[in-house]
Design a protein around this nucleic acid. Structure first.
Lengths: 171, 171
DNA sequence: AATGAAATCGACCAGCA
DNA sequence: TGCTGGTCGATTTCATT
């Protein structure tokens, strides 16, 4: 049963996704051979996956260090709960330069914010900017010493069981 | 002065990076026109950026929801500090199915782990698996209600100042 | 879903600043 | 070292079955 707005996927679709999320530069011929399909079949499926927004974009991955972004900070943000400003505060957080992830979470902390900056001055400015947002009550920041894994890849991190579920549609 | 192993970049390089991280499917001709450069010049620079590992990969971005991955959990992990196992524990964490980010942090918490799963059973299993790792002392998990921003894009999140620094090399 | 033809694109080259 | 313009081969794309 479809529980979401996306089309049902089969094993072949997942195989294609796994491959192109790893390296979108593969040419159709190679992909087709790997999957034992014709080039046009692969082409057809790829188009379908893009149209259905299963594939949302094809993008070049850029090493942040190449641009001097060698500091990552994790900031937990708590808001004044009387205020119904949560929505606005979320928006304000996403708009701050250097911020690359914002989550709205359950628990004593309301937002978790990840940012990437080049130096301590920028780190300071960024935390200041967060504190200044109207409705923000308290913040606590952690400095990241090492990024052991940062994999935006979807299929790559899935277990066999997850893939099976995704194909069956029995989420 | 170069403070890292990467080549110096100029404004044109950054413009190219900004464009291809947004959409790597642009053809050379279009890119060249936008930058008022020749196709071969763009080609030349792109190769250079890939060779220097400024561009680490070209990948298709896949919507996790299309595969039923509709739950994100943030887990804070503290380890027994006598043990010098931090390295091993980090490795163990990155290897767990569903885990897509692992940070080693300063402070009372040692690791921050982000995972994506399809249902509560998987969530349970995942947290269990973390607790079971040898040397792990304590864990605290937060459920993510909303992902307000998840942008792996590097240049996109940079301020003008950051770009200027990156180009000058004055990090 | 496969075939094959037409259109398009990226890779490469020699020459040049 | 980086750029230009042009050519060739490879690759995507599309109409048809």
């Amino acid at each position: 049963m479809d529980t979401n707005e996306f089309p049902a996927l089969d094993e072949t679709d997942v195989a294609i996704l796994e491959r192109v999320e790893r390296d979108a530069d593969v040419n159709l011929a190679e992909l087709a051979e790997e999957l034992e399909l014709s080039k046009s079949a692969v082409h057809y499926r790829l188009n379908k996956l893009k149209d259905a927004n299963v594939i949302t974009a094809v993008s070049a991955d850029i090493d942040p260090l190449a641009l001097g972004l060698n500091m990552v900070v994790i900031t937990e943000v708590s808001v004044a709960h009387e205020s119904g400003y949560a929505e606005d505060i979320g928006q304000s957080l996403t708009a701050i330069d250097g911020v690359f992830q914002v989550y709205y979470t359950m628990g004593d902390v309301d937002f978790v914010v990840h940012s990437r900056v080049q130096n301590r001055d920028q780190m300071n400015d960024l935390v200041d900017e967060i504190v200044t947002i109207d409705g923000v009550n308290e913040t606590a920041s952690k400095f990241v010493m090492r990024e052991l894994k940062t994999s935006t890849r979807t299929v790559e991190n899935m277990s066999e069981e997850m893939v099976r579920n995704a194909v069956d549609g029995t989420d």
